[in-house]
């Protein structure tokens, strides 16, 4: 499989996974909540494809895309959302609280920035050659702990890539009602270099991330990637207050599957589409038949 095809495959996997969740929530297969990544797939795929196996990923409440791009098992993630014993964390964590290998997520916005900074520092102090990547959305930028972490990360020189996925909306609050100044300016204030891209093209994100990751690894200091992104779905399951026309426009112009898919031969693309539909369906069915989480509390 070519790299371009592999990237497309990851994009489609996340999309179909998230679509399945939204559809099956309505049918009652899942309980609790979810935060879908539909529209933002190129961010996770473009960044994580450049990481080494031992590198660390710290993610947030909208973590399914990051987890799947990291190589996480769709059946285990479905199982986690269904409360199955085969779930990523045995059903204890649910949608927002995943840990597998060097992947960690938590649902408290902003809390993951200090956590990731501490992880990066610990790795450096112990002489490991890893870098840590932390994903956060524009909504998290209202949290004070984010800036304490920026300060520590820069002051103490930690090998940390900060990825800000700016989807312009925090639950239902548009960016203009939540952010003064600029995102880049906030990083600049702490001496953290940043690179901004406004794209849903996985190749553009990947090439930018590749350079930043190389710099973090070489300098052992933080860098930031600010991605102007587009969320097509609701914050959670059905809480999108944006006009339908706006979403349709985003889907028409900012769909990472279309943008990257158009580079591929139709037959190759269709083969991936077919394969992923079957793969996601099989993972879903497997998880559905897995035993419920049990054991002592």
């Amino acid at each position: 499989m070519t790299d371009a095809l592999a990237l497309y495959r990851s994009l489609v996997l996340i999309r179909r996974f998230e679509e399945t969740i939204l559809a099956e929530y309505r049918r009652g297969a899942f309980s609790g909540t979810t935060h879908t990544y539909i529209g933002q797939e190129a961010n996770a795929v473009g960044v994580i494809t450049n990481l080494q196996p031992d590198d660390i990923v710290v993610s947030n409440h909208r973590c399914h895309g990051h987890f799947l791009a990291y190589g996480g098992d769709p059946r285990a993630l479905f199982g986690e959302l269904m409360g199955r014993v085969t779930g990523v964390c045995g059903g204890r964590g649910g949608s927002q609280h995943l840990h597998w290998r060097n992947f960690y997520s938590n649902g408290i916005l902003g809390s993951t920035l200090p956590l990731a900074t501490g992880i990066a520092l610990a790795e450096k102090m112990q002489g490991r050659q890893t870098i840590t990547t932390v994903f956060a959305g524009d909504g998290a930028l209202g949290e004070g702990s984010v800036y304490e972490a920026f300060n520590f990360a820069s002051l103490w020189g930690t090998p940390l890539l900060i990825v800000i996925e700016n989807n312009h909306i925090a639950q239902t609050t548009p960016l203009a009602l939540g952010l003064a100044g600029s995102i880049a300016g906030r990083l600049t204030a702490f001496g953290i270099p940043s690179c901004a891209v406004s794209t849903s093209d996985v190749l553009e994100i990947s090439s930018t991330a590749q350079a930043l990751i190389a710099e973090v690894r070489h300098s052992q200091r933080p860098q930031a990637l600010i991605i102007d992104s587009a969320r097509f779905g609701p914050h959670s399951k059905s809480d999108d207050t944006r006009p339908v026309e706006m979403i349709e426009e985003l889907r028409r112009t900012r769909d990472p599957l279309t943008i990257h898919g158009n580079r591929l031969a139709v037959s190759a693309r269709q083969a991936v589409d077919t394969e992923i539909v079957a793969l996601v369906r099989a993972a879903f069915e497997q998880a559905l038949s897995d035993p419920p989480a049990g054991g002592a509390l």
Partner: peptide
Amino acid sequence: LTTPVSEAGMTGLAAGMALRGL
């Protein structure tokens, strides 16, 4: 390590450090 006046930050950092072997 002496820290800035940053209790939330240092405690969060320390949680990350503990998670990764310190």
